[in-house]
Design a protein around this nucleic acid. Structure first.
Lengths: 246, 246
DNA sequence: CAGTGGTCTAGACCACATC
DNA sequence: ATGTGGTCTAGACCACTGG
């Protein structure tokens, strides 16, 4: 007789709290405004602080809130769209993009990267670090892995350090004939060094964008970019989008 | 004298725990194996259960673990690559894809979708629900929003229900001349209904893929797909990738 | 039924930012 | 020095799965 499921499972408190807070954020708070502190919010809703925090955590995950230790919890602005596939098949650092080279060293990449590159697990490769900003805020940190034999004409690099060395590697890469590239996006948590560059705590959720560059019939470079998941919305596709995107 | 930063900040316990567990997963456990239960693991490491759970949570976020209430915590298989941009510019449901239409109703879309479609906030649109599976496991749930005037020749739909109705809407859409599309990817948390379809708890982390379809010089449809963030790695780009991907 | 993970509490102390 | 969010504890009970 079609009893629609009423008096069904009791909704968890933190889940209900989340909806209440979401509505409040929509109607009563302006972007950038500081919320009451966690102890007061918990008291106001009659829950333990840990429960309140569980709700805040989800809201931060959804990009609605921003929490900073020692400061407070603020209402986050809508996520910024960050173009990831704006130009089809282009080398990193080509033209004027929003990336900034930081430095470069020779180091053994993580096992997963070595597998993609087809190099031995302990082989060292050029490792270029870049960061990407948006309106003054850091949004991404990237490590680009380039085996030495991908850029054979790169010589006399020993004398270079820092950003200069990073630029030298990118320059050599751009001389190759890019045959293709592909990407994957997955969820991860920020490693300690990336977290510092992104101004977040270690372990905060990030979007990992892995790009593989093909030339000469093989994989010549792999880039792993770490985007702040709380503030970023990655955009792909036709250039027309950014103009219309809300 | 180059004192490398020793006795620096005390690493949080859950962070250290995560590292230890990660190493253990790499060396001592096989995919699918069941870990000791949380109370025992906590005791074994000499921490409170809540602290242990904080570490497990992150590992689940990274796709290393899978936790199921009433069952236990198991070692997760590597993330499956799910093609999102495999075919350039194609209508949903065109050809043989891994999506399965579920049903379709007329309903008012969320405000954010209405904004993308350029419809009034309370205007109803065709809302098609589809699900996507991979090796028998559900990986994504999608809601496709199609304003009625995007498919003017769609008539006599009132008699249809369920999957048949969903297919009818998709069929009409495919008759249009697709001019372009673009996508965005962001982090979200699963709504209650999506969570049920994905066999997850409400609030679990998901990747939201928003696709916008252009035809006749305007946005004719918007799709919001919800992918399980714990098990999915979204792949874009050249078709050659999937063959080589590890 | 017993055992699992999920939720919740009421405290405590710590790291950090700001004044 | 004060106030914030971040970490941690030791418990309790609930919801779910499986034999």
């Amino acid at each position: 007789m079609g009893t629609t499921q009423l008096d069904t499972v009791p909704e968890p408190k933190y889940w209900h709290l989340k909806t209440v807070l979401t509505d409040a954020l929509d109607s009563e708070f302006a972007v950038g405004e500081i919320l009451p502190n966690e102890r007061e919010l918990a008291a106001r809703f009659g829950v333990a602080r840990a429960t309140l925090r569980q709700a805040l955590e989800q809201l931060e995950l959804e990009g609605r809130l921003q929490r900073r230790r020692g400061v407070g919890t603020t209402v986050a602005p809508p996520r910024v769209g960050v173009a990831v596939g704006d130009a089809e098949h282009s080398w990193p650092g080509a033209g004027a993009d929003s990336w900034q080279p930081v430095d470069s060293v020779l180091a053994a990449p993580p096992a997963a990267v070595a597998r993609l590159l087809g190099t031995a697990a302990d082989a060292v490769v050029h490792t270029v670090r870049r960061t990407r900003g948006n309106h003054g805020q850091p949004v991404a940190a990237e490590l680009l892995y380039v085996p030495a034999d991908s850029v054979p004409s790169l010589t006399a690099i020993g004398a270079l350090t820092g950003a200069g060395r990073a630029r030298a590697v990118l320059r050599e890469l751009q001389r190759l004939d890019l045959e293709g590239q592909d990407r994957s996006v997955e969820l991860g948590s920020a490693r300690a060094d990336d977290a510092k560059q992104l101004d977040r705590l270690p372990g905060s959720p990030v979007l990992l964008v892995t790009t593989r560059y093909y030339a000469n019939g093989r994989t010549v470079a792999v880039a792993v970019a770490t985007y702040r998941a709380d503030t970023c919305k990655l955009t792909f596709g036709d250039s027309g989008m950014q103009l219309l995107a809300g």
